[in-house]
């Protein structure tokens, strides 16, 4: 079943990615004030969205692991965390590349930027906690951390926003007037990236399960 889904997912991607690139480069209009750099925006927002979605998956899988102790849930959470880190890294790298030519600054402490950075740190901490070994207690700890870290995300966002509402923002991401065409392309990018996410998730999940099986086989051999 999983293999079939992966094949299907792969071919959907093969179809969606070229269409998405076509839409971004040829269909979507060039933004008047920002120029062509603004087109980075479609992938930037899509990867940010996936980064957040991946953390929701980590959260749910962590709860499921603590509830029923199925190793698969832990594998799913770890795979999702790794891919989430990948996409959040994309967001963090493209953000400044887009902001610098427009606002003449690489970084501002806007709530969304701050939250994204903290999210990245929490992902890295999660992987560091889990990555050192496959002992049972590491799985449990990672699940506990996954839950606490996810609860922390809205707290970071709202406290950062509240702080910024007191000290006015110099540079703001608001006010990008999106035309209907742009909106459609952005929506399409998000859909494409969601398929990319599930494809990578399946791939990585299988990789982690294989590594686990090798560990078991080695343990059996050494007996």
């Amino acid at each position: 079943m999983l293999e079939g889904w992966k094949k299907f997912n792969f071919w959907v991607l093969m179809l969606l990615v070229p269409i998405n690139i076509y839409l971004i480069f040829l269909y979507a209009p060039v933004e008047k004030t920002m120029g062509i750099v603004q087109k980075v925006f479609y992938f930037h927002v899509a990867s940010a969205w996936i980064g957040l979605l991946a953390f929701v998956v980590v959260f749910i899988a962590s709860i499921a692991y603590l509830a029923n102790r199925k190793v698969q849930m832990n594998h799913l959470a770890l795979a999702s965390a790794e891919i989430g880190t990948l996409f959040i890294s994309c967001t963090l790298l493209t953000g400044p590349l887009w902001a610098y030519p427009i606002w003449n600054t690489w970084w501002t402490w806007d709530p969304r930027l701050t939250t994204t950075l903290v999210l990245w740190f929490m992902y890295v901490a999660y992987i560091a906690l889990q990555g050192g070994g496959t002992a049972e207690n590491r799985r449990r700890f990672a699940a506990v951390y996954g839950i606490v870290a996810f609860i922390n995300v809205p707290l970071v966002f709202f406290s950062a926003r509240w702080w910024r509402s007191i000290h006015p923002i110099v540079v703001s991401g608001e006010g990008i007037g999106l035309t209907p065409k742009m909106r459609f392309v952005m929506f399409f990018s998000i859909v494409t990236f969601s398929f990319l996410y599930t494809y990578l998730l399946g791939l990585r999940y299988k990789g982690i399960s294989l590594a686990e099986r090798i560990n078991r086989l080695k343990a059996e051999l050494s007996q």
């Binding site: 903290v118 560091a128 700890f141 950062a160």
Partner: peptide
């Protein structure tokens, strides 16, 4: 959590600081 793991000294601040931001 970290005290039960071998690399406790390094892990503890890595886990702690992101949660402390708010």
């Amino acid at each position: 959590i970290t005290i039960q793991l071998p690399s406790a000294r390094l892990l503890f601040p890595i886990l702690l600081f992101p949660l402390l931001i708010p």
